[in-house]
Amino acid sequence: MNTRLLPFYATLFIGVLAYLICVIQFPGMFSTRVAGNLLTDNAFLGIAAVGMTFVILSGGIDLSVGSVIAFTGVLLAVLINWNGVHPLLAFAIALTLTTLFGAAMGLIIHYLDVPAFIVTLAGMFLARGLCFVMTTDSVPINHEFYTMLQSLYWRMPGGGRLTFIGGLMVATFAVGILIAHFTKFGSYIYAIGGNRASAELMGVPVARTTVGIYALSGFLSGLAGIVFSLYTSAGYSLAAVGVELDTIAAVVIGGTLLTGGVGLVAGTFIGVIIQGIIQTYIVFDGTLSSWWTKIVVGILLFAFIALQRILVWLSTRKASALGAH
């Protein structure tokens, strides 16, 4: 078995186990209704997490995700409600801006050769600040197109609803998997995450790919912002605080190595669902409080980082046993 995929199998195992425990305790959770809600409630998180997966796979990090989601929400509210722009056009404007925003961060990271976390930290401040410049109020979005999108769903067998945004998340993951494994861009991401210097020697266009990765993350954060505004029907400057941490946690729990190069987009999907299951469990239980989510996520985060560390340690020990050096 490929040891690099071990974290992914561990995620899969934990995900299934968690779900089984829930179902044994609360048989009500075994329904497509709950499954549909899981997808809907975590749609924006999942979409942003796909972008974060690519960033982390390349060995970087993007702290601006939550702020960009809030920025998109506020921008949409302002455009649609106050300026009468059609939502579709507003979506296009928002996605263009967030993509450019990500690309700009990628440019700075690559050409100034500075750590991604400090650049995206500036991005986080900037995006959040721009929200406040537009408005500090929570602006509701009322538009028939929004109502139409919100009421779109596909009734699954068993009565569950796969909503438009839930479906969009699943579609995003599908496209993400295609990008990761069936495009040159995807292979370049893994290559840079594996070893930037080697990748460069092998002819990988490092500059173009780095900018592309952060642009993609910006685009997906924008998409997550659109989904979030559909989910909440409002734009609010203080929304989605700390979502970047949730997405990073989902990516790591999904089995992606935080140092880059190893991981699967599909793993992130399970990571998102595990977080959703924990929340659902807490709701079903009724006596537990919401902060347990953070603690359990923290413990899982530690467990996965420790697991990866042990795997790396084992593989270097194997390597040093093989070679003389």
């Binding site: 040159k184 292979s187 594996g194 070893n195 080697s198 092998m202 990988v204």
Partner: peptide, 18 residues
């Protein structure tokens, strides 16, 4: 060896010209 241990053998052989 300046190849990428985290990619498959085939990807290492053909990266950029798949």
């Amino acid at each position: 060896v300046n190849l990428l241990p985290n990619l498959s053998v085939a990807e290492n052989l053909y990266i950029g010209r798949q």
